[in-house]
Computed example of a mutant assay.
Amino acid sequence: MSRSVALAVNGRTDIGQVREENEDAITWFAHPEQPFAYVVVADGMGGYSGGSLASRITIQTLSLCFSQLITPTFLACSPEQQKLMIDAAVRSGIYKANHAIIDAKADNPDFAHMGTTVVLTVVWKDQLTVAHVGDSRAYHWSLKGLTQLTRDHSVVQEMIDAGTLSEEAARTSEVRNHITRALGVHDDVEPELKSYRLTDSALLMLCSDGLTEYLDNHELQHVLATHRPALECCYRLIDEANHGGGKDNISVGIMEVTVGARSSVAPVAPSQTADGEDTTIRRN
C-alpha cells in the first residue's frame, strides 16, 4: 500500500558571473490535488542563442507530456500500469524534444551546433522516476545521507569508470565539458531511466553542471542538511556557486518529499518555468 506523500517544489536558474546568456532552463510543477510533481533541468549548448532555444524546447515539450498524464484513466490504473505510463511519458517527451531540436537546427544554420542535456524527476505517490541525458544531475538527500542518482554521460566519467582519472581531478580536467550524450545531436537518443520507491521523507535536488563544478557531494550534502526552509536551498546553492566563480550558468531545482504523516507543507510556486552520438560534444 502506498504511503501518504506531500510534495513541494521550487527552482531557480541564474546566468552566473561570466556568461552573457543563460542557456539553462528549468521547469517545475506540483499538482494541487494529487501527489504528483516533477522537476526538469536542461543545460543548452551551441551559442547564437541556440543553447537557450534547445533547453527551452526540452522543458516545454516535457511539461506538455506530463500535463497530459494525470487523467481519470491514469487514476483508475494499477500502480504497475501507472509506472509504465509515467515511463512512457518520459521517453516520449525526450524523443519529441530531441526531434524538435533537430527540426529547429534544420530551419536555421546558426543553430547547427545546438543541443542540450536534460535531467528530470517525476514523483507519483511514493514512486520516483529519474531520467537523464548528459551531465546534469539528480540527487536524493535524507537523514541517511546524500545519494547521487545519475551518472554523467561524459568523457571524464568514462575515465573515472576506467580508473584513469580521480573524481577530484575530473573537476578541473580540460575535457570536463565534453559530454557523450545530448538531445539534438542524433535522431536516436537513449535516456537513462531509473525508478525508486520513496520510503522516507527526503529532498530531491536537480542541477546543471554550473553547480557541481564548484560544489562536491560533501558540500551539497551540507547545504541540503542544514539550510532551511528546504525549498530555499536552490537559492543558497546558486549563491555558493557564484561566490566560487560562477563561470557557467547555474540551475537548481528542489523537491521536498514528506512521507508518512499528513504534512502541512504547501507547494511553493507550484508551476514555474525559467529559461536561462557516440560523439563527444563540447559546451563552450
Rank of each mutant, 00 (worst) to 15 (best):
S2N: 15
V133N: 02
E33Y: 12
D200H: 11
C77A: 12
D87L: 15
L165A: 07
L183S: 01
D110L: 15
T73P: 02
S166K: 08
R3D: 14
S173G: 00
P32C: 08
T116M: 01
H227S: 12
E240S: 04
P35G: 08
V257D: 01
F111W: 09
L84G: 13
K125W: 03
H99I: 07
D87Y: 14
D24Q: 05
C234G: 08
T121W: 10
G244C: 09
G134S: 09
T279P: 07
A100V: 10
D14P: 04
G115A: 03
L7I: 05
S263K: 04
A169Q: 15
K96V: 06
T273N: 13
A112I: 02
S92T: 11
V130T: 05
S136G: 02
M114H: 00
L211D: 09
V259D: 14
G246D: 05
L198N: 02
E192S: 13
R19L: 06
N177L: 14
M159I: 04
F74T: 09
I102N: 00
V39E: 06
E167M: 13
A269Y: 12
A261M: 15
A88P: 00
E33M: 08
G276D: 01
H218Q: 15
V175Y: 12
D14M: 00
A170L: 07
Q157V: 02
E80R: 06
N249M: 09
N242S: 07
T13Y: 03
I26Y: 05
G253N: 06
T212L: 02
P72D: 06
R12F: 13
R12W: 08
D248P: 03
K83W: 05
C65G: 01
V265Q: 13
A182D: 05
E168D: 14
P191M: 11
S92A: 08
H186K: 12
Q60N: 15
T164D: 13
H132E: 04
T129C: 14
P267T: 06
L220A: 04
P72K: 03
R3I: 11
F36M: 06
